[in-house]
């Protein structure tokens, strides 16, 4: 243990340390958050008119380079986010081999302690969501027409077990974002006695708005507010 005058560069590379992996999670988290916002804003057009959302869907497909660029970026982000979280989860398991008989967590939020639950549930949702509305292979409740996004959504959500799963998944996303949105600033090195509490409040509001916005669609369908055309 000499004083580290010359650190060998190949010692532990950036992503091989826990801080590096957390930074990977934070950066990919920002990208995924951006997607969630854009996706929500796009989806809310369903409240305007069937033509509006169908036209929006056509527009997205009209520039394949952009569409596939976004899809590949998201896929890479998701993979890195999951890879880093899994590696860290294993590290955590190894770091405390003997559990406490009694352990009381007093100052942490429920959301922060359950990221490893809300994350996989959201992942399961994303996989189903793709099969449901993108590929249309698991679409109970009605016919799937690639060119009629509006009807696909309405028929899809009229089948209540699917809607229920979507709503539960969005509540999990809310928890995940509530902790993740402010936590990424801390991970990337920004913490401030005044601004961090505001970031936490902002994260809470953003997480609730995103979940509420997404949940409003299946609820509107189930309530009969949005009908098939």
């Amino acid at each position: 243990m000499s004083a580290t005058a010359n650190l060998p560069l190949d010692e532990l590379r950036f992503w091989e340390t826990s801080v590096g992996k957390k930074a990977v999670m934070a950066v990919t988290g920002v990208l995924l958050f951006g997607f969630v916002i854009a996706h929500l804003l796009g989806n809310l057009q369903i409240f305007e008119s069937p033509e509006k959302i169908n036209h929006y869907a056509e527009t997205l497909r009209s520039v394949p380079v952009l569409l596939w660029g976004a899809r590949i970026t998201l896929l890479i982000s998701v993979c890195l986010h999951i890879w880093a979280s899994f590696a860290l989860w294993r590290l955590q398991r190894a770091a405390r081999p003997i559990p406490y008989v009694k352990k009381s967590n007093t100052h942490s939020t429920y959301a922060s302690r359950t990221m490893m639950w809300s994350g996989p549930i959201v992942l399961a949702f994303v996989i189903y969501h793709l099969l449901h509305f993108t590929f249309g292979v698991v679409h109970p409740g009605g016919p799937f027409d690639k060119h009629n996004v509006y009807n696909n959504v309405v028929y899809g959500f009229q089948f209540w077990p699917v809607s229920l799963f979507y709503i539960v998944a969005m509540i999990m996303l809310c928890y995940h974002l509530y902790h993740g949105l402010w936590s990424m600033f801390q991970t990337l090195g920004f913490s401030h006695p005044v601004y961090t509490p505001w970031l936490q409040r902002l994260a809470k509001v953003a997480a609730i708005l995103i979940a509420a916005g997404n949940i409003s669609i299946p609820v509107a369908v189930l309530a009969g507010f949005i009908k098939p055309v």
Binding site: L12, V19, Q92, N105, S108
Partner: peptide, 20 residues
Amino acid sequence: LAMIRQMNREGFANCSNIGE
């Protein structure tokens, strides 16, 4: 660099910013 690397070598896991 050296302290964070040593922290990982000792088997301490990551921070998840929960505040306990």
